[in-house]
Lab assay of single mutants.
Amino acid sequence: QLRFETNGEEQAKKVLEEAKKHNLEAHVTIENGKWVVHVK
């Protein structure tokens, strides 16, 4: 499982879109005010 700390909602959405293009499972959590994308 990969973990990407992003700078906010915009970047998190871009990472999610990329993951979906590659048929990867991804979800976002907010940790300590940071948007974190988890990709399987």
Rank of each mutant, 00 (worst) to 15 (best):
I30M: 12
N32Y: 05
A12T: 04
T6A: 12
V36A: 01
T29I: 11
A12D: 01
F4L: 09
Q1T: 15
K14R: 12
E10R: 05
G33P: 00
T29D: 04
E18I: 14
Q11W: 11
H27N: 08
L2V: 11
L16N: 01
A12I: 04
A26M: 03
K34Y: 09
K14S: 09
N23V: 02
W35E: 02
V28A: 06
E25V: 12
E31F: 04
R3L: 08
E5A: 02
V15W: 14
L16A: 08
E10W: 09
K40T: 15
N23I: 02
E18Y: 15
H27T: 13
T6N: 04
V28K: 02
L16I: 13
N23G: 15
K13D: 06
E18D: 11
G8I: 12
G33E: 05
T29Q: 08
Q11L: 07
F4N: 02
E25G: 04
K21F: 09
Q11S: 11
E9T: 04
A19K: 03
E9A: 11
V36G: 01
K13I: 13
E18T: 11
E31W: 04
K13T: 11
K14L: 13
K40Q: 14
V15K: 05
N7D: 15
E17M: 12
W35S: 01
N32R: 03
V39A: 01
T29K: 07
E9H: 09
K40N: 14
R3F: 06
E17G: 06
K20V: 11
E17A: 13
E5Q: 05
N23W: 08
E18A: 14
E17Q: 11
E25N: 10
K13L: 15
E25A: 11
L16F: 09
N7W: 12
N23R: 08
K20G: 07
K21L: 12
E5L: 04
E10L: 09
H38K: 05
T29N: 06
H27C: 10
K40G: 14
L2S: 08
E9P: 15
A12C: 06
F4I: 15
V15T: 05
N23M: 08
G8P: 02
Q1S: 14
K20P: 01
E5I: 09
Q1R: 05
V36Y: 08
E17T: 07
L24T: 03
